[in-house]
């Protein structure tokens, strides 16, 4: 039996918004520690790893591991019906055919109850081992979203170059080029506005801008984004949740 109650439905709304355009069907694996999702987008380029830890819930109970095979498009239609400030409760039996989705308005005594049919999805789980990274950048998530959106207007490839003192986002297209250079800086009053660059080795990688555009759909989940880069390995783009994370892994482009 799974029963998980969120203080607000806004977290789940943002999570579904962040991943529904990249993956259509995915398993929400519920255990006593929380809910995890691992899925690869249709082009098999982007790997998504989500953990909504138990502490994200107002109340959480999951006596036996339960897998919820969910069509995110359908789930999104239901989730949109709730107000962001409503309590959101998910309830499912052991080996369930559907999941109950309950919104409770905090002021008025209004309860909305939906049932979503579940699907039987095979789970090809990918093993994500700890990786060594050459550089780690932590920066405001909205700034990363703006820079990548701006540079995508010039080219379908985004270059990220990290040296000792700065990180350069670069785009080189048919009609022109664009470069945005950031230096590390600490914002004492608003730490989330800081830009932190840890470089073990200089790195210069090129990514598909359309996949980065999918990744920045996670922006509303966290004030900051952490980008971890390693040569010829998938980059990690992480949005931290109050308890958990939404991680995107994207391999750089490189000449064969």
């Amino acid at each position: 039996m799974l029963e998980g109650k969120f203080e607000e439905s806004s977290l789940m709304k943002k999570v579904v918004d962040a991943i529904k355009d990249s993956v259509k069907l995915c398993n929400f694996n519920c255990t006593e520690h929380g809910v995890t999702v691992q899925a690869v987008d249709d082009s098999r380029v982007l790997l998504i790893s989500l953990l909504i830890g138990e502490a994200s819930f107002e109340e959480y109970r999951c006596d036996r591991n339960i897998t919820l095979g969910i069509d995110l498009e359908s789930f999104n239609k239901i989730i949109k019906n709730g107000n962001s400030s409503d309590f959101l409760t998910l309830i499912a039996e052991d080996s369930p055919d559907n999941v109950l989705i309950i919104f409770e308005d905090k002021k008025k005594d209004r309860v909305s109850e939906y049932s979503l049919k579940l699907m039987d999805l095979d789970s090809d789980f990918l093993q994500i081992d700890d990786m060594e990274f050459d550089a780690t950048i932590t920066m405001p998530s909205s700034e990363f979203a703006k820079i990548t959106r701006d540079l995508k207007t010039l080219s379908e490839s985004l270059q990220i170059i990290v040296t000792k003192e700065n990180v350069k986002f670069s785009s080189d297209g048919d009609f022109g080029t664009g470069n945005v250079v950031l230096k590390g800086f600490v914002d004492m009053d608003k730490p989330d506005e800081s830009i932190k660059i840890d470089m073990a080795r200089p790195i210069n990688l090129t990514f598909g801008a359309k996949y980065i555009a999918d990744i920045v759909k996670g922006t509303s989940l966290s004030e900051s984004v952490t980008i971890k880069l390693a040569d010829k390995s998938p980059a990690l783009f992480e949005y931290k949740l109050p308890s958990g994370f939404l991680r995107f892994y994207l391999a750089p482009k490189f000449d064969e």
Binding site: F125, L126, S157, G208, Y211, K253, F254, D255
Partner: peptide, 14 residues
């Protein structure tokens, strides 16, 4: 033209 490798090339199915 640099190509975009698939992610399963880097993570093995467990």
């Amino acid at each position: 033209m640099p190509e975009q490798p698939s992610i399963s090339r880097f993570f093995k199915s467990s």
